[in-house]
Design a protein around this nucleic acid. Structure first.
Lengths: 159, 159
DNA sequence: TATTGTTATACTCTATAACTATA
DNA sequence: TATAGTTATAGAGTATAACAATA
């Protein structure tokens, strides 16, 4: 006897999955000398340069927190503040050459590691999962904190 | 023309979902005067008291980081270090009465908020999602960072 | 006046290395 | 000797409030 009920609830599943992904993200960053926050900043900037205010609202941080994060990342030579030609108060934060290279490496390794998480899921199940999570992400207007490149092809093999 | 392909990959879906859950977790904590880390500590301790080493490995933190986190949370009156009767070197970290009350409130509100994330999913889809994520969580041996209580019944209504 | 971004300040979070005390 | 935990130190991350410069 005993109800043999292995099914956990959606809430628990989501929170624990987030914990797992966070850990993988942090570990992947560590391997590249990146804090999770700096890794996240680089990933956001892979899509395009952004202003401080945009980054602030995308990442959910106070503007002064962004100033510090960009300062440190800039000091490490990974990003650069460029003047915004259309508003002399504003700056555009962009990846440096080195930052872009590191971003690609970090992104690729993170993808590789995250991809290993659903080891026991079939291809069809992964598609189902991606579809369901994709709807959650879309419905809740999650900002472009992680771009969508072709997952099937490792970065090293892209032309 | 155009491939009308809204389907994002599993990796992107997982990373963005984690970002979303993190944001909700942080916001929920803020409403209770808790940092995400302190909120997480309280949630872990809802299940049972743990030693510093156990917490360290469950949360993926260096032991000295745990010392600081427990120090601050203890200073706030939310947890307590108790001597381990079986090893005088060790301590058991447990919730205080006030910490337990706050943990329940934080936990309940976090559940409520996370539960709202899959707004557009049917009950069946939520079950499917929970099943798939549950397998990922199980396969990757995610520690008990968020306990599983009856999600259907709000904490306030439990006897 | 409103907005963009930085400074000043004060915590919290985290890790590494060295340490104390007990097993 | 090994293990449990703390201390010392240094840096990163974060927020609030006050500020400067431009729109």
């Amino acid at each position: 006897m005993g109800k043999e009920n292995d099914q956990i609830g959606v809430v628990t599943a989501l929170v624990r999955t987030a914990f797992l992904v966070n850990a993988v993200y942090a570990e992947s960053g560590r391997g590249h000398g990146l804090t999770p926050q700096q890794g996240q900043l680089l990933c956001v900037l892979m899509a395009q340069p952004y202003g401080m205010g945009e980054l602030s609202s995308m990442l959910g941080l106070a503007k002064s927190s962004l100033t510090g994060l960009v300062d440190r990342t800039e000091r490490n030579g990974l990003v650069r503040r460029e003047p915004d030609p259309r508003d002399s108060r504003a700056v555009r934060v962009a990846l440096t050459t080195r930052g872009g290279r590191l971003a690609e490496e970090f992104y690729a390794e993170t993808c590789r590691r995250i991809e290993h998480l659903p080891v026991s899921l079939t291809g069809e199940e992964r598609t189902t999962l991606a579809g369901l999570l994709g709807r959650i992400v879309r419905d809740n207007a999650v900002p472009m904190v992680f771009i969508e490149l072709d997952e099937a092809v490792p970065a090293a093999n892209r032309q």
